[in-house]
Amino acid sequence: MNINFTIIGQSLIFISFVLFSLKFIWPVLLGVMEEREKRIAEGLENADRAGKDLELAQKRAGETLREAKEQAAQIVNDANKRAAQIIEEAKEQGRVEGERKLATAKQDIEREISSAREALRGQVATLAIAGAEKVLGTTVDAKAHASMLDKLATEL
């Protein structure tokens, strides 16, 4: 219980341990823990950011999907319209073609009629002469009555 040199010895030991702690323990542990804190903070921040990114991506995906749906609907709509148009066009074309064919047919018929008439007209004189010969019992000189015959043919 006496105060003696021990008090100074203890002081020196104390100081040496504090210095050891100052040099080898405290800064190392502080560094490790600060580094870990930093890493945890970074990790949390990253997680936060990832969450936000995910949300953003989901939103974007939704938007893209919606756009795609709209586009698809648009395309279907357009296709329908185009189909209707094509049908209309086809109908119109058919009608026009039919009319054209009809007109051609009518022309053909006209032509046939007129050609038949021409042919008939050519033969009228011969027929008339043959008929008259039968009636008169003589030969009719075609040259003598040519003017009358031509007149008949034109009247025909």
Partner: peptide
Amino acid sequence: AMGFNAVHLDTLGWSLALGILFC
């Protein structure tokens, strides 16, 4: 009777040993 010219070997020894244990 030794007065100030003395050291407590047990005190210094144990504190040194325990301090070294800590270190």
